[in-house]
Design a protein around this nucleic acid. Sequence first.
RNA 1: GGGCAGUUAGCUCAGCUGGAAGAGCAUUUCCCUUACAAGGAAGAGGUCGCAGGUUCAAGUCCUGCACUGCCCACCA
Length: 801
Amino acid sequence: MEMGKVYNSKVVEEKWCKYWIENKTFSARIDKNKKPFTIVIPPANVTGSLHMGHALNATLQDIIIRFKKLQGYNTLWVPGTDHGGIATQNVVEKLLKKEGKTKYDLGREKFLEKMWQWRSETGDTILDQLKTIGCGLDWDRVAFTMDEKRSKAVKKAFVQMFDNGLIYRGKRLVNWCSRCGTALSDIEVEYADEKSNLWHIKYPLKDSDGYVVVATTRPETMLGDTAVAVNQDDDRYTRLVGKTLTLPLVNREIKIISDYVVDKSFGTGVVKVTPAHDATDNEIAKRSNLETIEIIDVNGEIINAPEKYLGLSVEEARKEIVKDLEEAGFLVKIEDYTHSVGKCYRCLAKIEPLMSEQWFLNVGEMSKKAVDAANDGRTVFCPQSWKKPYVLWLENLRDWCISRQIWWGHRIPVYYCVNEQGNKTNCKPVASFEKPEKCPCCKGKNFVQDEDVLDTWFSSALWPISVFNWGEDENNEDLKYFYPTSVLATGHEIIYLWVARMAQFGLEFMKDVPYNGVFIHGIVRDKHGKKMSKSLGNVVDPREIMEKYGTDVLRFALAQAAAPGRDMQILEESFLAARNFANKIWNASRFVIMNLEGMGKLDDNIYPSELADEWIISEFANTASKVKTAYESYNIDTASREIYDFFWTKYCDWYIELSKIRIMSADRNVKRQILSILVHMLKSTLQLLSPVMPFITSEIWDILNKDDENAKIIAESFLAVIPGCINQESAASQSVIPERLNRESILEKMKNIQDVIVKIRTLRSEMNISPAVQIKALFNILDNNKKQIVKENENYIKQLL
RNA sequence: GGGCAGUUAGCUCAGCUGGAAGAGCAUUUCCCUUACAAGGAAGAGGUCGCAGGUUCAAGUCCUGCACUGCCCACCA
């Protein structure tokens, strides 16, 4: 290809994307002679299209994979997508709504057909976009959390845990989203502060004229109050404990109880207890054996209440009840009050805590095992600071509500025995892959399957084992070879939702952690520090950046900003800087390639003949060593910066500049010697950089090696310019520098010479003297130290000026 | 209420185990020198959030405080 002055990313990127896929460069098969290095991609939701967060996450993983491949590992990076449960169902429901239909109009079966159709039309968008980023994924292994193999894994896991008694059904207080019409797990609720009021309400004592005043943010739930609680140490109320109150509007008799959780200093120090609609109250009720009265149903409507409130929505009921309380003289005052309110993480509707029958997973033992794995170093966090919150979360985890009242997802493989009329019998439900032949209990042959589906995170939790086909064969060779995976790279927003659950399931089913390392990277934020999200309308579309500047530029800008665990702002300027760097690489390469014209094929040896040669080699070795350490510890930002600095300020600004003068006056043989180092330094740097900027480096590599069939792509392992400087089994940085090159003394000498040259250039510039004036003219102006250096290196410096 | 990050040049950020303040962008001056003006050379710009402490020596370690952000919590 013609090397123009400016690097043209378009053609190059298309070429290499195609090349890597067609040649299956990143397809991995078991090779017992090589160590595996495995990553499973965090499966993107099928509703997704590439945003900056994906681009960052994918780029970082690709950098790690490409680096490990260069080091000689048998690398595997598994691609895939997630069915995305509620989120995806909501998308399709919205589409239906545009046609004026609801999912109920279609019915479950037709609706699911629609879902599958939609998923087959648009579900792979994100994968295609990952290809354009250059991701070295094994495209022969694409997985989907709801495809056949993954479904088998889900059923297998469920049945196993069900049979072990870990999965149980129970009626409990759950987080209910009445917009999505389903229960959610604790972690799927997002809390946000909201301005509201604190209503102070009189609750009269039954046997006297006295009363207590409760303060509440939810007056409407008084309909379901079954007690009033005070702190046992609260002198104001201790004498009242055990007395009976008459619940206003309802006229039910309720007791005053004491509980440690009540804060004397909050509100009036008296809490109304609504066990069916508040988590704290539910706990109090358990401790004091209180009755639970449900007054809000799954549609968000009032039930079990005086007639006038029946069927009202929660908000209507609140208005009515406050009005009625006021009219009846029970309302003492209304204060302004801001408190946090739970919202559905998918639709942002208010969460209603209510009683509902659901499937739960007992996570106690699994959590302990995951905690142990984090504590004993089987799973290592990068940065380490994430370990503590991770462990804390696992230690305080409540049982996981795994059933969802939606249609899109893995249907719960539990079957209920039914009689001739289709009514459920009292037989124990059975969990199994297929509909059972006959009931183990009554030998009946009729069954209905549970209506609910599993939390989408259930199948995600199985991802590291399901992608290796654990569901069909838990002893297969791939699983043995590639599991546990080497590292999991993700943002911190799904540590609990996903990372912790994978650890639990991995340890449960494989008796081993699913990943040895967890690399937590930051979140991309906009210039105001806000998280980029569609709803805020502040997204910088990575595809626009790729279009405008090229994919390598996008990758470099992201890589260079990706300090582990730190959120980052990506501004337009960071892309400009990266664009300039890409151009610099292109042009420096152009310089080298131009000088190679007519020089014939250089051999693989290098011929350092001057201080500058030794200096650049020594500097490269130093850089390579730092870069290696940085890549290996996932300090991708450091790696990128080190390469940038070496290439620009050392290789280009000094080495190439010095070489120009040398080349001009050199004969063919000397020129070949100088070029041997120029070329090798260039190639070596290209390799170091290739994980971050694979396109431009591959392209230049290809041009440099156009006559060499063996070096078609940047490749399987590093150059041996400086033996062992970067390979898997490399030694420490000191030993990689050829022995006769004493780094300290080279640096010292080179520094002195650079100082003199800079000084002389400055003098020329200040005195407005033409470059032709030789050192002698300027010699007298130099200080003694520099004079000495000039004397010692006169010939050399003359040559370089 | 608890936990975790951050606070370094006008802006975005590097500065790991303590030893003479760094990069990119922006800015000033000069240079279209045949790799690159998306470039080169030289320069200006910082009491490293505040207050203490440890040390011969502290952005770098310790304590307290302030502000910002995030996460967790049974904030009725």
